[in-house]
Design a protein around this nucleic acid. Structure first.
Lengths: 205, 205, 205, 205
DNA sequence: AATGAATGAGACTTCATTCAT
DNA sequence: TATGAATGAAGTCTCATTCAT
């Protein structure tokens, strides 16, 4: 009955992910979570002590698994621009296509009430990326990377803004996160298309 | 006793701004608003029909006043890069120093439940800025502005991300919104300092 | 300024009559009364101590005036059947055409909470009528009036039922109170049309 | 624990019937209902969505059960006077002895705010009776029944008036509903004693 | 006398959490 | 372990009444 229990836990987390993503924390209803997980309301409390703990569970187990593989996975201490670019765009693509972007938004968005969740998120997701960016920023001493030393957030900003835009500015055409991230990378790192391909939306000086 | 009433209305709006900014919409307590405004709970309803209307009132009267002067005020149809830069940085500075950034964040953050507030916000704040950016993007045919035609949001993204960062990533050094906006402007429009000074990306008026 | 004050009092009573009639006691709003009377809410309290007192005032001054002339006016101790019939039908016609029927209904209907209002109403309106009926019932020893001695209410029942019907059974054709009262009179007292007059609102086939 | 739940539902309905009967809709307190039902306030909402739904529930489940058996049950298309009389008096007796008369009064009384409840009541209770009366009125062409064709309500009027009287004219001897209904039946249909005895006060010319 | 802004008790309702089964 | 009925604190909102002007 080991995996029976794990399966139920997974069902709860999945339902909770959906509910939190759709409605945010404050407006999420445990009754909806239970219903969608196919369990009774009381059962939730056999797995999670409170609504907050459930949210924490969702955040941990939704964000961390892919966080572990590393949002930007790489090996060396020194990072090539191209490797970084590929890695980052892959992460963004992953984020865009998984359910994780939704919960990330909730964390960011309702972070006020859950500092420790922000911490989890930061540790699991943001720190590695920022560390990556920092490494990149110092991997090359061209002046153009200088800005990344001062504002490593600059590379993620368009992704975050894009997430918000896509969620709330319904009625406007959605932003493709990979495209906008790519554009920003081009601005900061130089247009990679310039170096390789011909067809691309080049941004350059 | 005309101004007496207006004063009370102002006190309520101020207390509400604070409460909504601190706790978001769902967790804002009308009792706290009343207490901080120095009025009875029922009094709130003499000025606003409901919690939602109060929120709307805060949004309108907090955002719009500066929206009217135009977040980016200007005259000509054609926009010089420098004029745009100055105008945008002034707006960001204004945003950073006023209480408006907080409520803007709440609007963005709880936009799901209040589409019409998002609309207000978009109309009053975002549209003008985006229109401005668009005008800029078409004011000059250098290829480098091309990216703005595809992603006008790119110029505001660092500001938005910075707002979120500053609010939730307590424990990290805060981002100066003017600085990061300035850095992004330099990336997109070219470093204007480059044309004047030798090395530095500081932004000036 | 004597009549100035009286005029204001009258305006309040009139507005209150309308409000109570339209919405009953519980759902009557003093703000509506004040608005329709053209005075401030606080002003009401210069004339009436409370909502209940205002209601009482309405009942007294709406019902009593015509109660004084006597819902059934008459002189002798002995009452002829015809005189009674005329008197009663006149009263019913009066009731139907004045605003009084509405307030009477409210009194009857919300009497639970206002025993003293019922008392007022009973004293002012019902008692005289019942006394009248009783006198009639004993004015003639034909057996046929016997039923009135046991149930003097029988003569007013159709009027009361008719009032309720007309107020709540919207969607059904309304009952003409004079007609139904007349029919009941015919049942109880015999068809007067048969015996005497040509002109009258007699009901017969 | 199926019946446990049903029992609680019944307890709530019973307490609500009492509360609504005693205080009307507007002045009924859900806290009182909960207290008298022996449940917590929130429990009410497990069974009924709102105060209005609770009221509706009381009305349906209090009035309808006996409405189903038919307030006046009978079979043939043609109705004998005696059968009708018995049936009607039985219904009145039933009404008088059950809790239903109270709630019926509330429905009639607060009908303004609950048109759909009036409809329920009318459909379940009044329509059948009126249909019955109508059938009776056409079952026999004696002129004396003519009045029933014009005012079928005439037969129920004394019952309604009696209900009001008994509820509000406390301090007066109560009216026995069966007796007054019987008296009215005698007036309209002729004294049933007539069929037995020789001398009677039949009304007609 | 008149105003109308202000009050605050109290109503209905929600929902995270508990607990008997 | 699982249930889901039950709880009750707490929230928003109403409105008769008061009171400073």
């Amino acid at each position: 009955m080991r995996h029976k229990k794990q399966a139920k836990r997974a069902a709860i987390l999945e339902a909770a992910l959906r509910e939190f993503t759709d409605n945010g924390f404050a407006d999420a209803r445990l009754s909806a979570v239970a219903r969608n997980a196919g369990v009774a309301k009381g059962t939730l409390y056999l797995y999670f002590d409170s609504k907050e703990k459930l949210f924490e569970g969702v955040v941990r187990e939704t964000l961390l698994p892919s966080g572990e593989e590393g949002i930007i996975s790489d090996n060396p201490h020194h990072l090539s621009t191209e490797a970084f670019r590929r890695s980052m765009l892959a992460s963004v693509a992953d984020l865009q296509n998984s359910g994780r972007s939704g919960i990330a938004l909730v964390v960011l968005t309702e972070g006020r009430q859950f500092p420790q969740l922000v911490e989890i998120y930061v540790n699991a997701v943001l720190e590695p990326v920022l560390a990556q960016i920092d490494r990149l920023a110092h991997s090359d001493d061209t002046a153009r990377l200088d800005v990344l030393r001062r504002f490593p957030q600059l590379l993620i900003a368009p992704v975050i803004a894009g997430l918000l835009w896509n969620r709330f500015m319904t009625g406007y055409p959605p932003i493709d996160l990979v495209d906008i991230a790519s554009a920003q990378l081009a601005l900061v790192l130089g247009d990679e298309a310039a170096s390789n391909t011909a067809e691309s939306n080049e941004i350059m000086d």
